[in-house]
Write a protein that binds this DNA or RNA. Structure first.
Lengths: 128, 128, 128, 128
DNA sequence: GTGGTCTAGACCACC
DNA sequence: GTGGTCTAGACCACT
């Protein structure tokens, strides 16, 4: 599914959180699809279940998944995510990165091309 | 100059590093301009000099500033920065953020507009 | 009749208990009225009958309903409920919430207005 | 400071969270005042530090306290709390409890008197 | 079998 | 010394 980088200085739960978010965002995991249980995931990655749980809890707080007792955890359908707050936060990141790229004299076309590329993939038909 | 946010979960030295980077990137600090000494900065922010030291060390490692013994630290002129490595790293960040925005159904125009805006500021004449 | 929220962190039986209590309290269900059987309710909500059973048991313990063997469960008439114990418990909750609202500088008029509103509905004629 | 009730069925961290919230709300702990460190509190209550940390994290998420690495945890000044969301949530609780009290034929004056009492304490001069 | 709570005890980064 | 991360292992409530 994915691998952890033990040399990475970020906490494990953060890496896990980001990896799962990536799978959701890329459409590998579909809305309402069940994600592996805390214990399964812990076994695969050979780390402690508590660490996985923390990652899941984080994802739940940020709205990417929801957990149902005794059932498991599932991908939140898009229409139930609060887009606005996230949008503003992400756009602020774009601004910070954009300024840095500008400073390095990287042409804006490089950035825009990358954006177009990502959005084109989706339109052309995602690989589900 | 700038203010620290104790609520922020990032370490202080990381906040300081990013604030200074921002000043450089936005053109507030010019190439070869001297940046405040560790002690001065520590006094202004009323924090431990070691914390400032670490921030400067980081900036030096990433190539944004250089230090001259017994003289102080200075902003690295652009042509002496290794653009390529940074460019690739930043573009990868753009990709991650772009995908998340796509997932949230934010139109690509929103992102591109922000990029255009940033690059336009510069062309129109930076605020020095 | 009502819907369950799987996202809600409370156990299902607790949600069900509160929903039924709400129907009784709002006067939608009248004293001595029969409430749906455990099996019916379980079918409607497509959940396990044991879960419903637990909710009913709770309501019986708190005096909101009574059950007659082989007949079903019924809404307890008001005059047979022990008001005093419940009153004190609820007033204590009012106190806790009131203090929190005071701390947040919410004017007491906001709270009182809400109370007046609820009590006015009844006097004006309940919606049975 | 306060005591835990081991017979209470709520998780320990939740009890701790509510007790601390109470101290803040009642004005026993002042804005920007330092609250006991995770370890101190754990010793006093003779429970595991992790449990305390979870309670503190919750309070931080809800905006009642803020934590500063290597410094400790502190009471959030009122003007930095998002009142609106909390207000609505609390008023909804008032509604639920109010309806139940109405159902039990408790006069609204009982509730209003309690509210007036709480708000009067403050005006008369809190015990700081 | 699931998510959640809790303990005991270790270690880390930060200041 | 502080908050934060992580492990190993136990137990609970819910369905």
């Amino acid at each position: 599914m994915f691998q952890l980088d033990l040399t990475d200085r970020r906490p494990l739960y953060e890496q896990i959180r980001e990896k799962i978010k990536e799978l959701i965002v890329k459409g590998v995991m579909k809305p309402n699809e069940k994600i592996p249980s805390v214990r399964e995931m812990a076994q695969w990655l050979t780390i402690n279940p508590n660490t996985i749980q923390k990652a899941y809890k984080d994802l739940e707080l940020k709205g990417f998944i929801y957990s149902v007792r005794a059932k498991g955890s599932f991908v939140t359908p898009l229409d139930q995510i609060d887009n606005q707050g996230k949008r503003d936060e992400l756009i602020r990141e774009v601004e910070r990165i954009g300024r840095e790229l500008l400073y390095l004299n990287i042409p804006k076309e490089d950035i825009i091309a990358k954006i177009e590329e990502i959005y084109a993939e989706k339109e052309a038909g995602p690989d589900d």
